[in-house]
Design a binder for these strands. Structure first.
Length: 202
DNA sequence: TGCCAGGCCCTCTTTAGGGCCTT
């Protein structure tokens, strides 16, 4: 499998803006089905973390006070990713923040995002639900640390991605699981993907 | 101190509504 960059943001809210920014990012690079490199950092964008989100992520306002500036972290993360194709769990969320934070640096994304949630809905329709943590437990994938911290969630998404790639290869005979194929699959209606998988055999 | 969104997908749909998923 080609190189893929799996990313996850922790933020202080759901939609980027002047009061809602990224607070932590993690990136892991997958190559030939293995995790080959990683980047992780808290970042200080000068925003306040509400108490409910602090409880959710474990990232406190105190922790952000000593974190490096957001511009420095996002430059490092963007340089780390380069033009590598991206993947995230519920990528529409991380894509918003990636594009917003890069935009503030005058930079622009050039690669597509694949989404492990959209793919899991198509490839694992019988899962109890398609939350990242649920899928990881349900599939018996390795524990990666405290949920809702960026690196732990990124590694969970990476393990999920490798599991889905394995399903496509072993159960459905897909010779090469490319990022382009993942992006195509996630755009197709679930019923159409199910029919395509069924025709390839289980 | 703490406000807050939006794309996807199903169906009791398509001139819409609501749940899922991310923090």
């Amino acid at each position: 499998m080609e190189r893929i960059a799996v990313i996850d943001f922790e933020t202080n809210g759901l939609a980027p803006g002047s009061h809602c920014r990224a607070t932590e990012i993690a990136v892991v690079l997958l190559e030939n089905g293995r995790l080959v490199d990683r980047y992780q950092s808290l970042m200080n964008a000068g925003v306040w973390i509400p108490s409910d989100i602090e409880r959710l992520t474990g990232i406190s306002n105190r922790m952000l006070k000593t974190a490096p500036p957001v511009a420095q972290v996002m430059r490092e993360a963007a340089d780390f990713v380069g033009s590598t194709p991206l993947l995230a769990h519920n990528a529409s969320f991380d894509k918003k923040f990636w594009d917003y934070e890069l935009g503030l640096l005058g930079r622009q994304r050039t690669q597509d995002f694949a989404c492990s949630m959209l793919l899991a809905r198509r490839l694992l329709p019988h899962a109890p639900n398609h939350k990242l943590g649920t899928l990881n437990s349900w599939l018996g994938l390795p524990a990666t640390g405290r949920a809702h911290r960026a690196l732990a969630d990124t590694e969970m998404a990476a393990n999920l991605m490798l599991h889905l790639a394995g399903l496509l290869q072993r159960q459905h005979g897909v010779a090469e699981v490319s990022h382009g194929l993942l992006c195509q699959l996630q755009k197709q209606p679930a019923a159409k993907v199910a029919a395509w998988l069924s025709a390839r055999g289980h």
